[in-house]
Structures are given as structure tokens and as C-alpha cells.
């Protein structure tokens, strides 16, 4: 990528395009918007290759992080927060049911483990964590959307993360 090699860019998109697009869609819900986000994420890497440093983690993590940030920016800009809630929560439920078939090899085992961990959260914990992480909501917005007190929203986020941390702590790291 540092040589601004078009072939390399094409290869990166072929390898990670499906994941990047899925992450974008998870956040923005709309496929057309998701494709725009995915496009922006790859162009960000192309234009500022120095922003990715392999010492700091895998290219996959980097691209997914950039994609999530861009998608959340877009969703916030569009003020379409509420529209995506249903899609988010449905996805969370699907995620907790185990992996779908026909997946490429990138990080499949990690995904299985992650999903297993997510599925062991209580429904209310998972809902809160997913809304905050994929939905870009603050705990106040989570509270408002779910009709629960702010303190309860904070507790669900904390309990959810604590449990995830505990489940993931003894195994290979995600990089």
C-alpha cells in the first residue's frame, strides 16, 4: 500500500471488502449507504497509508475500526438513529445464534468465539452493548430508546463488558 500500488489496493478490497461492507451495513442498515462507507474506508487507507501501522494490529482491525467510525459519523449526521435500531437488535439476536454458513476464512474462529461470548450475555446486556458499539449511541440515548433509567443503561453496559472481558480473557487475542 505504501507504494500506492493499485494491484495491492484491489487485493485488499477483495480480501476485506465483504467484512468492511458488513460492518458498515451493521451500523447504517442501508446497503447503499453502507457501500459508500466501505468505499470511503478503503480510500482513507489509499490516501493516508501511513495511518495504518502493522505494529499496532492487523489490517483487518484497522479497516473495521475506520469503517465503524465513518459509519457512525454518517448515521449521526443523517439523524437516522432510530431507523437502525430494529436492524441492530435483530442482528444481535442472529449473532447470538451462532455463525452463518458460507464465510471466508478471515478470522472465522475468532468470530465463532466472539459470538459464543456475545450469546452468553443476557438479552438486555447484549442489546445495550450492541446499541452503544454498533449504533454509536451514548448511554443516555440507550436509556431513552429502551425506556430505562440512565443508571440502568450504565449498569447494563458495564455488566456486559465485564462478562465479555471475563469470557475472552483466557483465550488467544484478537489482532
Amino acid at each position: 500500500m505504501l507504494e500506492r500500488d493499485e494491484g495491492a489496493l484491489r487485493e485488499v478490497i477483495s480480501t476485506y471488502g465483504g467484512l468492511v461492507f458488513a460492518m458498515a451495513k451493521r451500523v447504517v442498515a442501508d446497503p447503499t449507504m453502507a457501500e459508500e462507507v466501505a468505499q470511503d474506508a478503503f480510500l482513507a487507507l489509499w490516501r493516508r497509508p501511513g495511518s495504518y501501522n502493522s505494529d499496532r494490529g492487523s489490517l483487518q482491525s484497522f479497516l473495521l475500526g475506520v469503517t465503524r467510525n465513518k459509519a457512525i459519523d454518517l448515521v449521526r449526521h443523517e439523524e437516522s438513529l432510530k431507523k437502525t435500531k430494529v436492524a441492530l437488535v435483530t442482528e444481535a439476536e442472529a449473532a447470538s445464534e451462532g455463525r452463518s454458513g458460507n464465510e471466508p476464512v478471515v478470522g472465522m474462529e475468532e468470530r465463532d468465539e466472539l459470538r459464543a461470548a456475545l450469546s452468553s450475555l443476557s438479552d438486555v446486556q447484549r442489546e445495550a452493548v450492541v446499541l452503544a458499539y454498533f449504533g454509536g449511541r451514548t448511554y443516555r440515548e440507550v436509556a431513552e430508546e429502551l425506556g430505562i433509567p440512565e443508571g440502568t443503561a450504565k449498569t447494563r453496559l458495564r455488566d456486559g463488558l465485564s462478562k465479555l472481558r471475563q469470557l475472552l480473557s483466557d483465550r488467544t487475542e484478537f489482532t
Binding site: I13, S14, G18, A38, L64, E110, S162, R165, L168, F174
Partner: peptide, 22 residues
């Protein structure tokens, strides 16, 4: 918590790449 949060990204299952993306 930071490890748990960064691993959340890995719960997303890839989809088919849209035809026009590349």
C-alpha cells in the same frame, strides 16, 4: 474493557462484496 470492546468488531460476519465496490 478495551480488549472486549475492540474484539466486538469481530462478531460481524462478512457479506458478499457489492459488485460496484472495487
Amino acid at each position: 474493557y478495551s480488549g472486549a470492546v475492540s474484539s466486538l468488531a469481530f462478531s460481524v460476519a462478512p457479506e458478499a462484496i457489492p459488485d460496484t465496490l472495487i
